[in-house]
């Protein structure tokens, strides 16, 4: 089990975790309507590389296996292609549930064995700094940190991106970056207050 060295987040009563995930998902996720048919996993282009198929993850959420779910690589391997979402006979908003699970895991500092959380954090720190993303610089940084052995193979691509004018050396900084930071700080406060609120039974 990846990350099994970490302490388990507190275990919960069956059903409580399901309610927590539903509450953390925007809109009506319909997660409670899952009939365990497996259409999601069968439609998923990255299911083969997940710890658990989406169907299994939803069963685990319902069973209250909070620690295992938050440590699973499954939500981090979701490519957000929405094939599952449009094929689900119960119209569960599956990618949104995956985002919600990732956000809970991030808040609690539970990290699966994947470079995905680090990529998300680097991406977001660029937004905080500039208000815009810095795609190619971000990719370069991520490859240097996590896949140094791939760098020789990737170098010609990097050179081509620079010489073809597709890679800026710094992102554009928006004028309203202070306002943006204030908005994000307020959103964080609101989320923290909301997260400590009792999950409705």
């Amino acid at each position: 089990m990846p990350g099994s060295g970490q302490a388990d987040p507190p275990s919960v009563r069956e059903g409580d975790f399901l309610r927590e995930v539903i509450a953390a998902t925007a809109g009506d996720s319909r997660l409670g309507c899952c009939i365990q048919c497996g259409t999601c996993g069968g439609s998923c282009p990255s299911a083969a590389d997940m710890d658990h198929t989406p169907r299994m993850l939803f069963a685990m959420i319902r069973a209250g296996l909070r620690g295992e779910v938050l440590r699973s690589t499954t939500p981090w391997m979701c490519v957000s292609c929405y094939f599952c979402a449009v094929r689900c006979p119960q119209e569960v908003h599956i990618p949104d549930v995956m985002y919600a699970v990732k956000a809970i895991a991030t808040r609690e500092g539970v990290m699966p064995d994947s470079t995905a959380p680090d990529f998300s954090r680097t991406f977001v720190s660029n937004i905080h700094r500039y208000g815009r993303s810095y795609e190619v610089g971000l990719a370069a940084k991520h490859y240097i940190r996590h896949y140094p052995l791939r760098l020789p193979g990737m170098a010609p691509m990097g050179i081509a991106m620079v010489t073809k004018g597709r890679m800026g050396f710094a992102p554009h900084r928006i004028r309203g970056v202070a306002g943006l930071r204030a908005i994000l700080a307020r959103a964080e406060e609101l989320e923290r207050d909301g997260a400590t609120r009792e999950v409705p039974a």
Binding site: A24, T25, A26, P75, W76, S80, Y99, A100, K102, A103, T106, R107, A116, P117, F119, S120, R121, F123, V124, I127, L184, A187, E188, L190, E191, G194
Partner: peptide, 10 residues
């Protein structure tokens, strides 16, 4: 697809 993985509200 990165920000929403860390915080939905933000």
């Amino acid at each position: 697809s990165e920000y929403v993985s860390l915080s939905q509200a933000k």
